[in-house]
Design a protein around this nucleic acid. Structure first.
Lengths: 130, 130
DNA sequence: ATATTTGCAAATAATTTGCACGTAA
DNA sequence: TTACGTGCAAATTATTTGCAAATAT
């Protein structure tokens, strides 16, 4: 069967607090370094296990960065939205998907975000697979 | 300095021919397996080195898959476009970005591609970094 | 009391590198 | 003939796992 219980432990609280205050995708190693800076001693394995669990619960979003290293961020997948990612600091801002055709406009207006690129992927079934 | 020359070798021809006939993202390991199936004996290191070189030349596009394993596909970054990726076979079809607001419509009409999801990321400078 | 979590050290898996030998130009 | 490429084995890096000790309930 699946998960049976969920104890509240210091490592988990510490990791959650790092994720809560960083609006950007962080690798397991970066989170581990953040913990050390805070004086919170947690093993890297525990960081990985905690991130896996948070992801399984749907509390965080994981995505491999350009080099393939997996990174994590607190992000509700509940409301469908997209991300605006700053090329210099990595800060992630949420963008709702209502007005797709004015995305550049609204991005600048709402978030002061100056757009200089984007990546889009559509998923589904191709003609051959339907 | 950068690259000084570019010899035409059998390993490079074989790897290029696999990429040329597969309209999907393939990992280094998958390309290596494809080579073995063709009876072409090339070391995995050479596969990696060749892919790095092709990427540096801008001939192929690399992207980490969901597990962080890096995958590669022949893809001109010259004309700006996006990708439609089949969830069952992985086939990639190009999608131009003219009519963003009708993407679902046009996708089905043009490519017989039944859309069931997408991922979008915007890049630029956030308010703090400008 | 006991199920769950943790740390540590060892195991994996993907990717990179050093170097002696092979090959294209 | 010489700069460039390749294979192989070893190194590196990210991540996972086994297990005994610690902790939350």
């Amino acid at each position: 069967m699946g998960i049976r219980a969920d104890y509240v432990t210091r490592p988990r609280e510490w990791i959650a607090s790092i994720l809560a205050r960083e609006p950007r995708f962080l690798s397991a190693a970066q989170i581990h370094q953040g913990l050390e800076r805070d004086g919170a001693r947690v093993s890297l394995s525990t960081v990985y296990r905690t991130l896996d669990r948070l992801q399984a619960k749907g509390d965080i979003t994981a995505r491999p960065d350009a080099d393939g290293e997996v990174t994590y961020m607190l992000c509700e997948p509940t409301r469908h939205h997209h991300h605006a990612i700053c090329r210099s600091c990595g800060r992630v801002e949420d963008v709702d998907c209502a007005a797709m055709e004015q995305f550049a406009e609204s991005l600048r207006a709402r978030n002061g975000f100056e757009l200089d690129g984007h990546a889009i992927e559509f998923f589904g079934k191709c003609g051959a697979c339907r």
